[in-house]
Design a protein around this nucleic acid. Structure first.
Lengths: 230, 230
DNA sequence: TAGATTGTTAATCGATTAACAATC
DNA sequence: TAGATTGTTAATCGATTAACAATC
């Protein structure tokens, strides 16, 4: 069913995983949440269909790019009309797997971890951080934004018993690799890494880095050139 | 020396801005902080030189890619030896403009803003958040991580008087565009945008988005495919 | 109908990777 | 010297953009 030989295309299957033979265009995947956000606005305004031209204009992108990106989800539109807003939202959410919520554990209740525990927007991503863990005895036992902070000793066991797939990593850099190792050993399948450390993990594990420094590097370089040019 | 285009190349100038005619390869710029971080480790270990092969191995990248990226900074290495660690660190910092610290104002002291005010790692980026602003009367007048929270009314005036170039935007989505407008109007040159909103700004203003949702989209898609494949 | 929009195929552009001479 | 590494030029790969027929 997943297999798509050059000749016969696979049958329609709404639950089909992204064909692993077809490469996943990451820049496109990264733009999907942008579309999703805007589409929800459009839906809230009560507009039942929307065109790529329209989306592109709003987000300051090329309309062809938007169309290509949306095509990833296998949705089909109607010439002259565009796409049905609701169907498009669902297509993107299904493609990203955001429609069935994944539970996650967060490790490292520093200021960033604290902020993420309090962030209300994750349910939009199908992400629910259900508990936090920390080594610090004075944090353990407290609640942060109504989520319990548990001792590291309980981590592996709870991951297994609750079948938690996602670990959110917000520990200090020095602890990052060893906590990541623990996450892998405990049976987690994905690590959302907020530390600046390049983690080593088996390639069966999904590791995604939030590289704030990378983002700031672009800002700083551009600003620095701007200021030099007066 | 660097190149000889049809038109006259600029003279050698160590403080020269990145040639605006030469496009800026963003993926490379985004990797530079990764190198920087590792190079500081190398330096701390007392090793005076380091090769691309070595860096690449540590970061799990291709050595040719690392060499190309480093070449952006115009540093020259020595065959068989590699690069002098200290010189390479300085070359990257100079290239990114991280060696002379920029002051910044943060607007929006929610949980994320709070976290960023407490983050100690920004001086490594040449970034210093010197004050915060918020509309909420109960936050104004307090100190967060020893930084004062000031009322929005003081914003424009202080930006001008203190010549603050960078605005860190951590307000709720609904307020993002209007605060960005204020930043621009006040004379700021760059906005580091942590909101999910696609901002509109004159193209003389540097806008850099930290797109957490984009990062999570990649994680979610990969995890979702992984789980479907069993 | 005419015009706007989709979906697809082709062309372009830029980034990554490979190849290789120069060199310490 | 021999081998490792740099710097540069060429080849490959992938993403973006353009072109255009199909269609509502």
């Amino acid at each position: 069913m997943i297999e798509t030989p050059a000749t016969a295309p696979s049958l329609e299957d709404p639950d089909m995983a992204h064909d692993p033979l077809r490469p996943l265009p990451l820049p496109s995947v990264r733009r999907l949440p942008l579309y999703l956000r805007y589409l929800k606005e459009v839906e809230a305004e009560g507009r039942e269909s929307v065109s790529c031209t329209h989306i592109a204009e709003h987000l300051n992108l090329g309309s062809i790019q938007v169309r290509k990106d949306l095509a990833l989800t296998d949705i089909v539109g109607r010439p002259k009309i565009g796409f049905e807003t609701r169907a498009l939202i669902e297509a993107i959410e299904t493609f990203l797997g955001w429609n069935n919520t994944q539970e996650a554990f967060l490790v490292g209740v520093g200021s960033l971890g604290h902020a993420l525990l309090g962030y209300g927007g994750f349910d939009e991503f199908g992400l629910s951080i259900v508990a936090a863990f920390d080594v610090a005895a004075d944090k353990v036992g407290t609640k942060v934004h109504s989520k319990e902070v548990l001792p590291m000793e309980m981590f592996a066991d709870l991951v297994q018993r609750m079948h938690i797939n996602i670990g959110v990593l917000t520990v200090p850099a020095a602890a990052a690799q060893s906590v990541a190792d623990l996450m892998v050993k405990s049976g987690m399948r994905a690590i959302w890494n907020f530390t600046p450390v390049k983690l080593t993990a088996p390639d069966t594990i999904v590791v995604e880095d939030v590289r704030m420094a990378a983002s700031f590097a672009v800002l700083a370089k551009r600003l620095s050139d701007l200021l030099k040019r007066h």
